[in-house]
Computed example of a mutant assay.
Amino acid sequence: MTVTLITGANKGIGFETAKQLLELGHVVYIGARDVERGEKAAAALGARFVQLDVTDDESVTGALATISSAEGRLDVLVHNAGILENGVIDGPTALRVFDTNAVGIVRVTEAALPLLRKSSNPTVVTVSSSAGSFWAVNNPDRPEFQLPVALYSASKSAATMLTVQYAKAEPGIKFNALEPGATATDMTAAFGIGRSAEESARTVVRLATLEADGPTGTFQDEAGELPW
């Protein structure tokens, strides 16, 4: 059985990714800050729940310790937790966005590495965004060209770069980032855009189920590798 942890998985793309991976036979741990919402989501899917706030070191350590005790390893880690904060641009807001969208990746990855190294096919997938791509935000034909989300974009640039650097530092583990496509979630409600989370989750699932000789250090969408 493939053991998978998905952060921020009580709703949206994370929830749909959990659902699809469960259908493929994975043992899925839903990580969520809110215990009540996380437990409700896990119960609805038949998944397992761990309280996990990616901005809190103790919470992250506790979540991975729980998985270690129950499973002894981790095969797939999906970094899905993220926030938008498309209003005020100031220091406290920037710290909050980067703490969740970038530093959170470091916290969870570092805590998960010992368990990932015990897997025969360890895989890490980061739900990033082309809003953090120089190519996309400077291309008038791309929707990211018009998005006024400076802090989110900058934090997603960091998320993709962390993916590349971890892939280089840990050649035995596959690290890939993805652009999930404009998705109708709570986070994007203000823009009134997007397709279903179920559709966007398919790219996450594809990267989460790569064979052992699959690619690493890439940034992809549903059609394949993207410029960045």
Results as ranks from 00 to 15, higher is better:
138 N>V: 06
146 Q>L: 03
162 L>P: 00
170 E>R: 07
129 S>F: 05
132 G>A: 04
158 A>L: 00
127 V>G: 06
128 S>P: 08
163 T>D: 09
159 A>D: 05
146 Q>V: 02
151 L>H: 02
137 V>C: 07
147 L>Y: 14
138 N>G: 08
144 E>P: 00
126 T>C: 09
135 W>S: 12
136 A>M: 04
144 E>D: 07
166 Y>C: 15
150 A>Y: 13
127 V>R: 08
145 F>S: 11
164 V>L: 11
141 D>G: 14
166 Y>E: 12
150 A>M: 12
169 A>F: 03
151 L>T: 02
132 G>R: 01
135 W>T: 04
158 A>N: 01
153 S>C: 01
148 P>Q: 11
158 A>S: 11
165 Q>K: 11
163 T>Q: 11
143 P>W: 09
162 L>I: 08
164 V>T: 08
171 P>H: 02
143 P>N: 12
134 F>R: 06
157 S>F: 03
167 A>T: 14
151 L>A: 05
141 D>S: 11
133 S>E: 08
149 V>G: 04
144 E>Q: 15
147 L>H: 12
148 P>V: 11
138 N>K: 09
129 S>V: 06
133 S>K: 14
145 F>L: 12
126 T>A: 06
140 P>I: 10
150 A>P: 15
162 L>D: 04
153 S>V: 00
126 T>H: 15
152 Y>H: 12
171 P>W: 02
126 T>E: 07
167 A>P: 15
141 D>K: 05
160 T>G: 03
147 L>T: 14
136 A>I: 07
164 V>Y: 15
142 R>W: 15
150 A>K: 04
155 S>G: 11
160 T>L: 06
146 Q>Y: 06
148 P>K: 06
133 S>A: 11
164 V>D: 01
152 Y>C: 05
130 S>P: 04
157 S>W: 10
141 D>Y: 04
160 T>P: 14
146 Q>T: 02
137 V>I: 15
134 F>I: 10
171 P>A: 12
127 V>P: 05
125 V>R: 07
166 Y>N: 15
140 P>C: 07
158 A>T: 04
137 V>S: 04
136 A>P: 10
127 V>M: 05
146 Q>F: 08
130 S>D: 11
160 T>Q: 15
137 V>F: 07
132 G>V: 03
171 P>I: 05
142 R>P: 01
156 K>Y: 00
132 G>E: 06
169 A>K: 10
156 K>W: 08
138 N>A: 12
130 S>F: 08
156 K>P: 09
129 S>W: 03
159 A>G: 04
141 D>C: 03
144 E>K: 09
146 Q>S: 10
170 E>L: 09
153 S>Q: 00
138 N>L: 06
132 G>D: 01
139 N>H: 13
152 Y>W: 13
151 L>P: 07
156 K>I: 05
134 F>Y: 03
148 P>L: 08
158 A>I: 01
168 K>G: 13
156 K>F: 00
166 Y>P: 08
161 M>C: 01
163 T>W: 06
